[in-house]
Each structure stands twice: as structure tokens, then as C-alpha cells.
């Protein structure tokens, strides 16, 4: 308890120090508000425009969350298919890497042409950049199951031979061994993509943020505030965006802890071990 208080105080003093030096920099260099607004005017912008901030936050959360969730579901399914044979992996895995290296800024306009503007398009962009880490990590987790445990499942396989029994055996292996074994790796993928989901959504919104003029997600509002030289509001939006990214990351970490704390080493706190 005492340690926690010290933790909070030290984190808070760094925050206070940053705010003070922020204000000092403006004072020393005599910066105008449109270049660097003061902490106070940013706070005022937050308070005054809180409703529209919340709307933007809600829209971006939906797009980022939807794309993220879809990438997890699709990523798991693709990884399961990849885990079935190394031939499938040889044929298709390189394209997963390709997906990861495609500059999202470059293909965003293309996606807009294909699926139109608005939250759905932003979700699609988020989905595309979140997908590779989920596929890569989950596939790795599925195929690196303990060989001896696979042998154990094979030895006690009671489905007999034939196509249908083979399928049932594969499903049993997947459900009772491979998927649980892959959970830690899956959560690494989920955590990595949680960080980039918000970035993806905001990049998407820079291109396609709004289906109605004036109303859009954080990325759209950022371009709008920038164009209007509302730098204090821009700052407020940036803070909200990084707060959202942090929330996603926190959610991923919490889920990881919730599902794995009973058994997986990496999820154990040091005191427990």
C-alpha cells in the first residue's frame, strides 16, 4: 500500500513537471497559441467542447473496436487453417507478411473507393493493419504445441480411422490442446494489434472520417481542427486519441490476465511465483 502511494506520487510529480515546463517553454519562447497552446487553454477546450469530443471518441472507438474485434476473429480462423498443414503455410503465409508491409496510408484511398467513406471504411482499414500480428502469433502458438502432448492425444485417440474420425480427432486436438496452448501467443497478438488499432482508425479517418460534414471521429476532427488552426482543440483530440489507445491496450492486458492468470507463467505476478 505504501509502495503504491509512492508510485502514484512519483508519476504525478513527473506529470506536474511536464505541465510546468510546457508552460515555461511558451513563456520563454513567447509562442503564440496557434503553435503551442497552454495547458490551461487545452483544458478549457476539453471542457467547452466536451460533447463533440465524446462524439468523436465514440465514433473512433466503434471503428477501431470493430476492426480490432474482426481482426481477432478472422485472425484466429486463418491461423487455424494455417496450422493444419505446412503446405498451406508455405503457400499463403508470405501474403500475410505482405499485408503487414503494405503502407496503410497508401492503400487507404483505394479502400475508400471500394467500400465508401464512413465508419465502416475506417473499420476495414483498422482490420487490415490489426490482422497480421494476430495471424502470425496465433499460428505460431498453434504449431508450437508440445510434441509429446500431441503424441498423447494420438495414443488415446479413440475415433478410429477414416475421413470423418480423422476430422473429429483434429477438432478434438484443436479444441482441447492446440487452442488452449496457443492462448498466450494469441494474447500477444491481440495486445500488439490493440496498440495499432487506434492508430489505424485515426489514419483511416484522416481520409474518410465522416459521412456528414462536421461530424466524425478523432482523426477527422484532428484534420478539421488543424485546418481551422484550433490548436488547443487539436491537442485535446490528440490526448483523447492516445487515451483511447491506452484503454485498448489496457483492455487487452486485462483480458490476457483474466484468461491466463491461473496457469501461464508470463501472466503471473512476481510475488505469486
Amino acid at each position: 500500500m505504501k509502495r503504491r502511494i509512492i508510485d502514484i506520487i512519483s508519476a504525478a510529480s513527473v506529470c506536474a513537471g511536464l505541465l510546468v515546463s510546457w508552460r515555461l517553454i511558451i513563456f520563454i519562447f513567447q509562442l503564440p497559441a496557434y503553435l503551442l497552446p497552454s495547458p490551461i487553454s487545452v483544458t478549457q477546450a476539453v471542457i467547452q467542447r466536451f460533447p463533440s469530443l465524446l462524439v468523436s471518441l465514440g465514433i473512433t472507438s466503434m471503428a477501431a473496436g470493430g476492426g480490432w474485434l474482426a481482426s481477432i476473429v478472422v485472425g484466429i480462423i486463418v491461423a487455424i487453417v494455417f496450422a493444419q498443414s505446412h503446405w498451406i503455410r508455405r503457400m499463403f503465409y508470405p501474403y500475410t507478411l505482405l499485408l503487414q508491409t503494405v503502407p496503410i496510408v497508401a492503400i487507404a484511398p483505394l479502400i475508400l473507393m471500394w467500400v465508401g467513406t464512413g465508419t465502416f471504411a475506417v473499420g476495414v482499414i483498422t482490420f487490415i493493419i490489426c490482422l497480421p500480428p494476430v495471424i502470425a502469433n496465433t499460428t505460431q502458438g498453434l504449431i508450437s504445441t508440445d510434441k509429446n502432448l500431441v503424441s498423447l492425444f494420438l495414443m488415446h485417440n479413440s475415433f478410429g480411422s477414416g475421413l470423418l474420425p480423422e476430422l473429429r480427432y483434429r477438432l478434438q486436438l484443436l479444441w482441447k490442446l492446440q487452442l488452449p496452448s496457443a492462448m498466450p501467443a494469441l494474447f500477444v497478438g491481440i495486445r500488439i494489434s490493440s496498440g495499432i488499432a487506434v492508430i489505424g482508425a485515426i489514419v483511416g479517418e484522416l481520409f474518410a472520417g465522416s459521412s456528414r460534414v462536421g461530424v466524425g471521429g478523432l482523426g477527422y476532427a484532428i484534420t478539421y481542427a488543424n485546418a481551422q488552426l484550433q490548436t488547443d482543440y487539436l491537442f485535446a483530440l490528440v490526448f483523447f486519441a492516445s487515451g483511447l489507445g491506452f484503454a485498448f491496450f489496457f483492455l487487452a492486458s486485462f483480458l490476457e490476465w483474466y484468461f491466463l492468470h491461473n496457469w501461464h507463467e508470463s501472466a503471473l505476478s512476481p510475488e505469486e511465483d
Binding site: 508440445d146 509429446n148 502432448l149 498423447l152 488415446h156 485417440n157 479413440s158 478434438q172 496457469w263 501461464h264
Partner: peptide
């Protein structure tokens, strides 16, 4: 196979299962 069991160099338990459920695994697969 059904009349054989195999023991490996390490215990090869499923970490997400309790001891009871680990012991049940072989009969469960049967």
C-alpha cells in the same frame, strides 16, 4: 493403442487444467 499408456520425460500436463482434470484427460480421450 487403447490398451497402452505412454509416459514422457516430463509430466506433460495441461497447465490450464487442474490436477483432477489432467488425470481425467486420458479417459476423456477414450
Amino acid at each position: 493403442r487403447k490398451m497402452m499408456s505412454f509416459m514422457f520425460q516430463d509430466a506433460t500436463l495441461l497447465p490450464w487444467r487442474t490436477v483432477q482434470r489432467n488425470v481425467e484427460l486420458s479417459t476423456e480421450l477414450h
